[in-house]
Amino acid sequence: MVTLSLRGQDHVGAEDADWLGPIRVFIRETLSNGGKLSLKHLAALLEVVWRMIVTQRSRVVTDDLLQAVFVQYQQRNLAVSIRTLLLRFFSQLYIQEHQNHPHIARSRILARWLASLPVQLVQLGSRNPQLSAQLLETIHPAAARGNKDLLQSLQKNACSIYDPQEGCVVVLPVESQKTLVQILHFLPAFPAELLACLSQVCNTGRVSASLATMLLRTVHLRSPLSGWSSSSQDVPVKDVDYLSFFFTTLTGFSSEMLRALQDTDEDGLLPSSTLSPLSVFATTLEQFLHHWDIVEEVCHCLDTLGSRAQCFDVIQNAIIKNLHFYGGETREQWLTDLLYCYSVTLSGHRANMGMRDIY
């Protein structure tokens, strides 16, 4: 067992490096030889590593020691207690020390570890919610601090993390879901494929309506249409993707799901009647209420855009386009009447109507 006490020292002089060198070699070899260590033994070694990193203030020493710890961290089939201890070591070292110690902030090994966290989160998923929550406890502050390595990895794995079927955002507990939605505020960009995932996350009902509205509000705030300004030339959310995202969310279904519904056996439809020439799909009350909350938030977001008249025009053109698309050449008279009534109503009352009323 190796113990080392360096409390009360502001720095380690050159003469100390000679006798600390063998200790560092011992620690490096013990951690990186591929052997499994007991929890108590590993905890003692990590305490020594922490103190040597903080007191010696050398990037070379820091990376040398962290590389050995990282080798231990990358081992497969580690006990959960060992994995948790190693994760907590890296996390606390980054959160507590990196701002006060530039040599820690510039560590290449720490940067590699941070970049690996989103990948680990995807791989871990719901198999160990507690461990996933600990990963998020580091990902969130690192994203908030604008850590480049983590943000690049987060961007690369965003579609997997926010996948509407198997992503962490739908399989983890509510608190972790909330953290994942908060992390979206720091994501560098929202490409169309990610927005498609987020739209389905809102509509599938696998996150609460309150979290879905929080997600919608985040996307809205990151758009230049809401007044977001960025020092980068690349805007987080393009205008066309923004509108597409909100209209898809208003519809309640992705284009793929709509096509699937159109091909569904008619046994699943409610029959048309003299009052309603439409054959509609029945939905549960829970699904209806969930989507109603989402619709209200979408309309609120659209209602706050800079030019209300322009927004009305966009919505009107989108609805007219959809009515024409679904009607085609064989459009029935009731659909033509609906389009006419809509146009008359909007042109006559648009000044006094809210976005929610128009929808």
Rank of each mutant, 00 (worst) to 15 (best):
V2S: 05
V2L: 08
Q9T: 12
Q9P: 02
G13A: 09
G13C: 11
E15Q: 09
D16C: 07
L31Y: 00
L31P: 00
N33T: 04
K36P: 03
L39Q: 14
L42V: 02
V48R: 01
M52H: 07
M52F: 05
D64G: 09
D64C: 06
L65P: 01
V71S: 11
Q72T: 07
Q74M: 13
Q75Y: 04
N77D: 15
L78M: 12
I82R: 06
L85R: 04
L86S: 00
R88V: 07
F90G: 04
S91F: 01
H101T: 05
P102G: 03
S107I: 01
S107H: 05
R108K: 14
W113D: 01
Q120F: 03
S126V: 11
A133W: 00
Q134N: 06
Q134L: 06
L135Q: 00
L154V: 04
S160N: 07
D163H: 14
E166K: 11
V170H: 00
V171W: 00
V171Y: 00
V174Q: 00
Q182A: 09
P188A: 04
E193T: 12
L195V: 02
L195S: 01
L195Y: 05
A196D: 15
C197A: 05
V201N: 00
N203K: 08
M214N: 07
T218M: 07
H220I: 04
L221M: 08
S229Q: 15
S232M: 05
Q233E: 11
P236A: 02
V240W: 03
F247I: 00
T249R: 07
L250V: 11
G252E: 01
E256Y: 09
M257E: 15
M257K: 06
Q262P: 02
L270E: 09
L270K: 12
L270C: 08
T274K: 13
S276V: 12
L278E: 15
L278Q: 12
V280K: 14
F281N: 13
A282S: 15
T283D: 07
T284S: 15
L285D: 14
F288M: 13
H300T: 15
S307Q: 07
S307Y: 03
R308W: 03
I315E: 13
I319P: 10
N322Y: 15
H324D: 14
G327R: 02
T330K: 08
T330V: 09
Q333A: 14
L346P: 03
G348P: 03
R350A: 12
R350W: 09
R350Y: 09
A351W: 10
N352Y: 13
N352E: 15
G354R: 15
G354E: 12
R356Y: 13
